[in-house]
Design a binder for these strands. Sequence first.
DNA 1: CTTGCAGCTACAGCGACTGTAGATGTTACG
DNA 2: CGTAACATCTACAGTCGCTGTAGCTGCAAG
Lengths: 163, 163
Amino acid sequence: MSITIGEVTIGEAARLSGVKVNTIRFYEDRGLLPAPPRSDGNQRLYGDDHVARLRFIRHARDLGFPLPEVAELLDLAHRPEAPCDAADAIARRQLAEVQRRISQLQSLAGELERMIGFCAHDRVATCRILETLADHALCATDHHAGRDATSDVAIGTASHAGP
Amino acid sequence: MSITIGEVTIGEAARLSGVKVNTIRFYEDRGLLPAPPRSDGNQRLYGDDHVARLRFIRHARDLGFPLPEVAELLDLAHRPEAPCDAADAIARRQLAEVQRRISQLQSLAGELERMIGFCAHDRVATCRILETLADHALCATDHHAGRDATSDVAIGTASHAGP
DNA sequence: CTTGCAGCTACAGCGACTGTAGATGTTACG
DNA sequence: CGTAACATCTACAGTCGCTGTAGCTGCAAG
Ligand SMILES: [Zn+2]
Ligand SMILES: [Zn+2]
Ligand SMILES: [Zn+2]
Ligand SMILES: [Zn+2]
């Protein structure tokens, strides 16, 4: 029975939230997680609210929201009486972004399938894959990577199920 | 009429290949593009072979191949009599990777659609989007971001069509 | 009282560039 | 020939979202 209920070390918070220790400190640095009180020995002590916040961040990251949007969503979540339009808008933007990336990747996949399909598995000199890489005119579609079209959506650290 | 035909500056090479000037120097640094001869004034002079190589790199990057695979593919392309199995294998790996990312993103999109669909557009306190972010148990699927599942496939600098 | 793990700060590194500063080179115009 | 405008040079910082390391200190158990 400690002095206050629910005060846990950073390691415990990591286990409870699925966010790695280093990442928790990183989020604090980034302003996503408020700096918690410290013990006599200068160690961070987290309460349930911090852990809940970490879980929220983790889940939003898993869904691909970038950190600035996660911060916005966290702010919104603390204004219960406000309308939720802003949150909806962020989610819709994120969905649109994910869909954009899906279609970009589908066009890449199609092009890759095509060049693999045309390859006769012979010598390099006649390999359709290498020919195609040397000349985009052999491609069926544009599949151009329009400015971060296929960049990261969510990297995640591990699964919700833990390591 | 210059001393040798087809010797172009880095800016010309950039225009001809669609690879940015800085990026060309970056590729040289990374060993993807051999260091070209220099002019009297120490400026790089590229021939058609360099430009072709740059185009190859550009195209492979647009298709999402990471730089190490691009390097392998370039090496292979210079051994015309070798069998093309290795190139095929790289392309297949890349396709598998792209497909993995597509399905990851599709699961994200599904989850995002679900939470957006359930939102009643009322107050934050009852917003399904924020509730869901706070609790993964409200999600229909796992959609976990398994170690770089959704990370970048190709960022690209601009389209083949130019800027 | 020591051992060993957990936590602390601070910083380097990933991938694949992009952008900048400050110094030269080159070219066009007058 | 001078000079202005632009291209290129090197070298390095910054992007994103972490991850991992080094070198400390703290803390509980034997
Ligand atoms: Zn082949
Ligand atoms: Zn193509
Ligand atoms: Zn809502
Ligand atoms: Zn979820």
